[in-house]
C-alpha cells in the first residue's frame, strides 16, 4: 500500500499484509570495508524475519540503519512509509516509538533502577501519561517477562537472562509495532536462550508485532523465524523459511546449517 512507487516485482506479491519495512539498495561501508552493498529486504506485518550471517557481516549495521543510529551512504529504508535517512530528529523519534530495539548487550542504564529503566522511554517519548498509568504499564511489562519483583533492583544485581528480559520489557513498554532484536540469545546459556526465544514468540503474538531478528543461534532461529534472510557479502543472498534454506544445496547457505 505504501511502497507502491517502487518497481521491485517481488514485493507484495504473495502477502496479505502490508509491508512495514522496505529496504532498497542499502549500502554502507566503513573505510575500505563494504559492509552492506545494495541490500534489499522487506518486512511484512506479522512476520518475524531472522537475518542470518557471519559475525562482522554487517547484521548489526543493518538494523542500526533501520532504527536510524547509523546513516547509510545510499539507499532507502522505509519504515511505516517514511524514509529513515531523510528524517529529522523529531520525526525520527515518532517512528522510534513504534519501533522497539533490543540491544545485544541489553543496554540497561547502569545508574538507574529497573523501574527507572522502564520509565525512561515512557517519559522520553513525549507520551504524556499519568503516574498511575505509567506504573500500570511498567508492572504490565514486567509481568509479561515474569520479573515483577525486580522493580527496585539495579541492573548490576540481575543475572544475564534477567537483564535480557528487563531489556525486552523496556522495549515492549511502548507497545511497538516492530521490534528489532540484535542477537537476543547471544551470551546466554541454551536453556535461558530457549526461554527468551519462547518469550519473543509469546510477546509477538500478544502484541501483534513484526520483527527482524539478528542471530546466528540456530535454536533461536528455528523457534522464532517465520522467514530467514541470509546476509552474505553485504547482500540479501537468499530468503526463505527455515526448512527451505536448510535443504538448500548452495554451499554458502549450507555452511550455516551444518552444526
Amino acid at each position: 500500500m505504501i511502497a507502491e512507487t517502487n518497481s521491485e516485482p517481488k514485493v507484495n506479491s504473495d502477502t496479505e499484509n502490508k509491508t512495514v519495512i522496505q529496504i532498497r539498495n542499502l549500502s554502507k561501508s566503513f573505510g575500505e570495508n563494504h559492509v552492506l552493498r545494495d541490500f534489499n529486504m522487506d518486512l511484512n506485518k506479522g512476520e518475524n524475519i531472522v537475518v542470518l550471517g557471519k559475525s562482522g557481516s554487517g547484521k548489526s549495521v543493518l538494523i542500526k540503519c533501520i532504527i536510524g543510529l547509523i546513516k547509510p551512504e545510499t539507499g532507502t529504508i522505509k519504515v511505516l512509509g517514511q524514509n529513515i535517512p531523510d528524517l529529522n530528529r523529531e520525526d525520527l523519534d515518532k517512528i522510534r516509538v513504534k519501533v522497539g530495539f533490543l540491544f545485544q548487550s541489553n543496554a540497561l542504564y547502569d545508574s538507574m533502577t529497573v523501574r527507572e529503566n522502564l520509565e525512561f522511554p515512557l517519559r522520553r517519548h513525549s507520551v504524556q501519561k499519568s503516574n498511575e498509568k505509567e506504573n500500570d504499564l511498567i508492572m504490565e511489562a514486567l509481568t509479561n517477562v515474569g520479573l515483577a519483583h525486580t522493580i527496585d533492583l539495579m541492573p548490576s544485581e540481575l543475572s544475564g537472562g534477567m537483564k535480557k528480559r528487563i531489556a525486552l520489557a523496556r522495549t515492549l513498554i511502548l507497545k511497538p509495532e516492530i521490534i528489532l532484536y540484535d542477537e537476543p540469545t547471544t551470551g546466554l546459556d541454551p536453556i535461558t536462550g530457549k526461554e527468551i526465544s519462547n518469550l519473543m514468540n509469546e510477546l509477538a503474538k500478544k502484541y501483534n508485532t513484526s520483527s527482524i531478528v539478528i542471530s546466528h543461534d540456530l535454536n533461536c532461529v528455528k523457534r522464532v523465524a517465520s522467514k530467514i534472510a541470509m546476509l552474505i557479502d553485504g547482500k540479501c543472498y537468499a530468503q526463505g523459511s527455515y526448512e527451505e534454506l536448510e535443504k538448500s544445496t548452495d554451499p554458502k547457505i549450507k555452511h550455516f546449517f551444518e552444526l
Partner: peptide, 21 residues
C-alpha cells in the same frame, strides 16, 4: 569511564532509540 562504558554497552544508542538525545 561512565560514558565510555555506556558507549560500549550500547546504552548511548539505547537512549537515542528511546527518544532521548
Amino acid at each position: 569511564a561512565e560514558l565510555g562504558s555506556m558507549k560500549v554497552t550500547e546504552q548511548i544508542d539505547a537512549m537515542d532509540v528511546s527518544g532521548t538525545n
